[in-house]
Simulated scan of single mutants.
Amino acid sequence: MSLNVRVLRCAPADVFAVIADGWLFPSWVVGASRMREVDDAWPAVGSELHHSFGAWPAVIDDTTVSIEWDPPRRAVMKARGWPLGEALITLDAKPRGDDTVVRIQEEAVAGPGRLIPAPLLDVGLHVRNAETLHRLAYLAEGRVHRAERSTAEQEIAEGGE
């Protein structure tokens, strides 16, 4: 299971507002390339996002289903990405002063991804989810700090990406 943590300069509600807008999914989830449909009930438990992943022309259509929705604290989703398999993604947000600590955990739960040794899989997932949180920071912080440097911009300025 891969785990990434990031402090964002916004409230947990700002983070969950981004997650709740299913049409923003490809803007913050690395690998998602486009949205095809968002269930009207999204992000209610059992509702789905119909997305594609990959780069054109090798794009695969699949879905992500909401397993748990407890804003502004926790969201759990099962992402399908066949032929690679399925993954369980948990996002937790906790206030820390005026900021929010966001934690994302991801684990392969079905398909060929489960056959990859955990330490090898975790390396790739860790890098991917670091960028996912980087993108989420742009969107969530941008809701409230339009004039200030976001943590994502600060990270780039300090030599990271």
Rank of each mutant, 00 (worst) to 15 (best):
W69I: 00
P83Y: 08
D99W: 03
I67R: 13
E86S: 13
A75F: 04
K94V: 14
K94T: 13
S66R: 03
M77H: 13
A87K: 07
V101Y: 00
E106I: 11
T100G: 10
E106Q: 14
D70K: 12
R74I: 01
G97I: 00
T100H: 04
M77S: 06
V65Q: 13
R80P: 00
K94N: 09
A93C: 11
W69P: 05
L91M: 12
D99N: 13
R80W: 08
I104L: 15
D92L: 15
V76I: 07
D98T: 07
D99S: 12
A87S: 13
S66Q: 08
V65F: 01
K94Y: 09
L91H: 05
R73C: 09
M77Y: 08
E68I: 04
I67H: 10
G85T: 06
D98N: 08
V102M: 09
A87H: 05
M77R: 07
D98R: 13
V101F: 01
E68L: 06
A79R: 09
I104W: 06
L84M: 15
I104H: 03
R73P: 01
A75W: 02
A79S: 15
K78H: 09
D70A: 11
D99Q: 10
R73L: 09
S66K: 04
R96V: 14
G81L: 14
R80D: 13
V101Q: 12
W82T: 10
R96N: 07
A75S: 14
D92S: 14
A93D: 07
M77G: 04
D98C: 03
D70W: 02
A87I: 08
R80I: 02
E86M: 08
A75K: 00
D70V: 12
P71Y: 06
D98W: 02
V101M: 08
D92H: 08
V76R: 13
R73I: 03
I67A: 06
T90N: 07
T100Y: 02
W69A: 03
L84R: 12
S66T: 13
L91D: 06
R73M: 06
I67N: 08
V101D: 03
P95Q: 07
R80L: 11
V76C: 07
E86P: 07
G81H: 07
I89Q: 06
R73T: 10
R103G: 00
L88I: 14
L88C: 10
D99I: 01
S66Y: 07
P95W: 03
T90A: 11
V102N: 05
P72W: 01
A79D: 09
L91T: 14
I104G: 01
D98F: 00
E68C: 04
V101K: 03
R103W: 00
D98V: 08
R73F: 05
Q105G: 13
L91P: 01
I104P: 00
E106C: 09
K78Q: 15
I89L: 11
L84E: 10
P83F: 11
R80Q: 15
R103L: 02
L91Q: 07
A75P: 00
L84Y: 12
D99F: 02
I89A: 05
D98K: 09
L88M: 15
R96S: 12
T100P: 00
E106P: 08
V65K: 12
T100W: 00
R73S: 08
